[in-house]
Each structure stands twice: as structure tokens, then as C-alpha cells.
């Protein structure tokens, strides 16, 4: 439910230029076994699409067009179909993001508790110039996110996988320091 990160300038239209794509679900790999196990939980292969995309993102940090093609081949659907799904859900990254992906909830319950100031503090202390842009050192990307479902612990911030609750602007420098590199 994020207002997703924007594409870094260099990522536009250069899908195939980098090193050749290394598949995630190679025959005999642990990921392939995991995917086969997941497929067995559903009466249709396509139902494993969301979990398969999660695996790609876990391993690669984002989901490239090549990865979409690979996932489509595994699950009997076209790359275009996979892209349709990837673009619907806000948590799938269509571009690389910072090593620490920071999502600050600013929906009304958090807004009235001061979430805007938390956003400002993150932008200031990470060196991210604006929401959605990655800091020059590649370390952080900060975005606003819609309701994280932790409204009683305003302001919740999701940093990579996990939530940090009751974040105030004063806590931001300490939180960033604790993240390490």
C-alpha cells in the first residue's frame, strides 16, 4: 500500500543491458523445490504467483522484467500477465531500492499523531532528497505508506520487513544508526 519508489534515472529502458539474467527457480534448486511445494497447496499453478514473486524479491531485492518472464514460464502465464499483477500490488519493487527500505505511515490516524514530522525527520537524516528517491550512497529509500494497520502505535514505520512502533522525529537518528550499513 505504498506510494511506491520512483525509478532511478538509469533504470529506464535498459532492461537487457546489464549482466545476463540468472534464473531464480533453476531445476533442482532449493527455490524450485519451495515453489513446487507451494504449487501443491492450490488447485491451480497460477495461485502460486504472489508467493513466487515474493521469493524473487527476497532473493534479488526487486522484480525485473526478466524475472517476470521467468515466473510466468514457471506458472504457465505470460510475462505481460505477470507484469499486470506486479503493478497492481504496491509492495513489489519494479526498480532497485535502498538497502533499507523505509515506509512511514501517514494515513489519518497517524497524521493526527504527527506522522508528517516523522517523514521529514527520515528525509533529513537519510539524505534522501525526496520521497521515493534512494539516498546517494544507496543505503536508504523513504516513502509514505498507506495505513500499516498499527494505528494504536502511531507512528508505525516499516523498515524492510519489520515494524517499528511509536516512532517520533527524535527517535529517527537512533533508529537509523541501529540499522547499520
Amino acid at each position: 500500500m505504498s506510494h511506491g519508489p520512483s525509478a532511478p534515472a538509469h533504470a529506464h529502458g535498459h532492461g537487457g543491458e546489464a549482466a545476463p539474467y540468472v534464473p531464480v527457480f533453476t531445476e533442482g534448486s532449493a527455490r524450485r523445490r519451495e515453489l513446487d511445494d507451494l504449487i501443491s497447496r492450490y488447485p491451480s499453478r497460477r495461485a502460486a504467483l504472489l508467493p513466487a514473486l515474493w521469493m524473487v524479491q527476497q532473493d534479488r531485492g526487486w522484480i525485473s522484467e526478466d524475472a517476470m518472464r521467468e515466473v510466468g514460464e514457471q506458472l504457465d502465464c505470460t510475462a505481460a500477465y505477470v507484469k499486470g499483477v506486479v503493478t497492481f500490488y504496491t509492495m513489489y519493487h519494479q526498480h532497485p531500492v535502498g538497502r533499507h527500505f523505509i515506509q512511514v505511515c501517514t494515513t489519518s490516524p497517524c497524521l493526527c499523531a504527527g506522522a508528517d514530522d516523522v517523514v521529514k525527520a527520515f528525509l533529513e537524516h537519510t539524505g534522501c532528497k525526496e520521497l521515493g528517491l534512494t539516498s546517494p550512497d544507496g543505503k536508504y529509500t523513504v516513502i509514505e505508506v498507506e495505513c500499516l494497520g498499527a494505528c494504536g502505535f502511531a507512528t508505525p514505520v516499516q523498515i524492510n520487513e519489520d515494524y517499528v512502533e511509536c516512532v517520533t522525529p527524535e527517535k529517527v537518528p537512533g533508529l537509523l544508526a541501529a540499522l547499520g550499513d
Binding site: 505504498s2 497460477r46 504472489l50 514473486l53 502465464c77 500490488y89
Partner: peptide
């Protein structure tokens, strides 16, 4: 994977179906 609308029951089913 991030979509409020998937809490709507028929959207939820579509989401499970991939």
C-alpha cells in the same frame, strides 16, 4: 502484497488465485 482492496472478499479470492 500491498492492496487495501484485497480485504474485499471477492478481491481477496482473486488475489489468492494469482
Amino acid at each position: 502484497a500491498g492492496a487495501y482492496i484485497c480485504g474485499e472478499e471477492t478481491a481477496l479470492m482473486n488475489s489468492i488465485e494469482g
